[in-house]
């Protein structure tokens, strides 16, 4: 990456970032929806918990993980949006590397989602006094997972060339992982077979890591999870680089 490319990346990302705020749908999906989900689910299951740990303590954490792994939907849709196809044409003609097309989408969506999710987390965690601990480690996990899932969304677009397919795959895979990993309701109490199956889902590892850090101050899961996330993100970026074709992003 030369200086000119870095400058291009910065300029285009800035424009993309602004563009994301223009569509109220992205704001709804990344800020209002997770907030509603946590509030409603937390209130509904409040009665089945006693005093020490509230339902918000569980759903606050798991639904934040769910929100973060769903940010791939935002990046996939922002990357292949119809309105940015003409600007993409200009980028291709302009001097510099055309890879900034997808790198800028990853960067801008990453920042946008991170901003929304941190806002939601700060609001919800203070509103309902959700018990958190090991905040720096949780933030590291949040940032890495966000980068991975945003990259994943763009990767599916690069591999399959169409937004429809990326949407189809992402929405089903994310929700299967979320249910298996017990993000939408606790899965661990459903017997040994289900418990074993739930470890197939990466969401389960994230939830497990977070909960053992928060409640047991046990960091033994943290480093493997971070390592796994970094490796997975690298793989996603390499696949993006190999399969990206500038012809797919223009009108």
């Amino acid at each position: 990456m030369t200086t000119i490319n870095l400058r291009n990346l910065y300029l285009i990302s800035k424009e993309d970032f602004r563009n994301l705020f223009k569509n109220p749908m992205w704001l709804f999906y990344n800020a209002a929806f997770p907030f509603l989900l946590i509030v409603i689910l937390g209130f509904l299951s409040k009665d089945s918990y006693g005093g020490e740990v509230s339902s918000f303590d569980y759903y606050g954490i798991t639904l934040m993980i769910y929100t973060v792994i769903s940010s791939g939907m935002t990046s996939a849709n922002a990357f292949m949006e119809v309105t940015i196809r003409k600007p993409n044409m200009r980028i291709i003609y302009a001097p510099g590397n055309e890879r900034v097309i997808y790198l800028s989408k990853i960067l801008s969506t990453f920042l946008f989602c991170l901003l929304c999710h941190l806002g939601v987390a700060a609001l919800v965690f203070t509103m309902f006094h959700i018990h958190v601990d090991a905040i720096p480690q949780l933030l590291i996990l949040l940032v890495l997972t966000e980068l991975f899932s945003v990259g994943l969304g763009v990767m599916f677009c690069c591999v399959f060339k169409t937004e429809a397919m990326a949407n189809q795959i992402l929405s089903i895979v994310i929700n299967i992982f979320a249910i298996l990993g017990g993000l939408l309701f606790p899965m661990d109490g459903y017997g040994p077979v289900v418990r074993g199956l739930s470890y197939l889902s990466p969401a389960k590892w994230l939830a497990n890591t977070s909960f053992s850090m928060i409640y047991d101050h046990n960091f033994s899961w943290f480093y493997p999870t971070v390592l796994g996330l970094i490796l997975a993100t690298l793989v996603v970026f390499i696949i993006c680089a190999k399969t990206f074709r500038k012809e797919d992003c223009i009108c």
């Binding site: 740990v53 569980y58 606790p186 899965m187 053992s212």
Partner: peptide, 12 residues
């Protein structure tokens, strides 16, 4: 068992 297993409903 650790508290996190209780939070995750491993044990009721």
């Amino acid at each position: 068992p650790e508290t996190s297993t209780l939070v995750q409903s491993r044990y009721d």
